[in-house]
Write a protein that binds this DNA or RNA. Sequence first.
DNA 1: AACATTGGCAACCGCCGTCAG
DNA 2: GCTGACGGCGGTTGCCAATGT
Length: 371
Amino acid sequence: MGRHSCCYKQKLRKGLWSPDEDEKLLNYITKHGHGCWSSVPKLAGLQRCGKSCRLRWINYLRPDLKRGPFSQQEEDLIIELHAVLGNRWSQIAAQLPGRTDNEIKNLWNSCIKKKLRQKGIDPNTHKPVCVSADVDNESENNKVPATPTSHRSNDNSSDEATNNATETIPLPIIANPHNSNSQIFSQTPQDFFRFQTSTTNTPSEMVDYLSFHHLNYAPSRIPNPNPNSLCFNLPPPPIPTKPQVPTWEGTTFTGGVGGNNHFYDASNFSWGGLPDCAKSEKLNPTAIPEDIKWSEFVGNPYMVMGNAAAAVQNQEFQFQTEPMYVENISRGTAAETGFITEAGWQRQQASSDAVYNKHLHTLTVSFGNTL
DNA sequence: AACATTGGCAACCGCCGTCAG
DNA sequence: GCTGACGGCGGTTGCCAATGT
């Protein structure tokens, strides 16, 4: 196997994408869809391999990307899903509309792991470090050897061991409320959800099963000034925000796409959302109109989305039917633009826990069917 | 101010599974 | 059944801005 045949071709560009390349790829996929990725660069006039084009589209240009900082609920959900799924980022991303596996993976490696460690939780086992010191001695023997250390000096490589997710995923220490004797479960995801669904547990009880809830992992949830960062309650279709254009050497992009010269105007980028460990510097709530312009450029996301993105949308349908979503639409909380008014946000926040538990239940059912 | 370190993120690499020929 | 093309995934790397010294 190894490298794809397209990668053997000469003169293929690598590295950061220029706005011109982005424009070409976006224009092509907007008009024709991606079809066969290997033919996309040729047809779009790009000196890239199809794989690179696919990655750029999925991680950056796709109009249904949410962007912006992760909400606390998103982070909590990622942690919960990671406890069950391990490093299966694509499956985790599938439950977070508008987020990419790469984005989640980066968040996990850069922020969440750090937070968990600060809370005294092993990010790999989701167990308290002091407990895992003893309990893990045995399980460590079954672990896959740690992957080679990265250049991140502060990364504790000892717990960088890859989660042998395809085998037995290290699950949190679970104290079964129906059993006076606390148990430590080590199950596959299938077993985990089989266990969950075979009991009379309510979704909220399931939440309690996860160790970090017992450990009060989540900090007190402060009101999120950016409703757009609460992905679960976002109504479809997601409104694309302008992509962040990475800097690259000596190029000033002056042209726009289809005459929209603001398309790559970095000064207009808006990210919104709760200031967090990531992207907080990008906040610019005044740029919403520009986002709308960009969405106008893109047009109907569903018209231009490829099959893969459409499949994701289908998968997310269960979230779109949440009562909160319906309410937002019926009350005209700018649902058509993807933005929710502050009042709408407050209503969301009031019932966020209930909605959150509903999603957990949905996930339980979903994974039970798919794993 | 200069340099070193850290952190975030985009992109690449290499492997795996699927499928058509 | 074999082979190669392809899509997809997770791990890793490189770049660069932010931060610290």
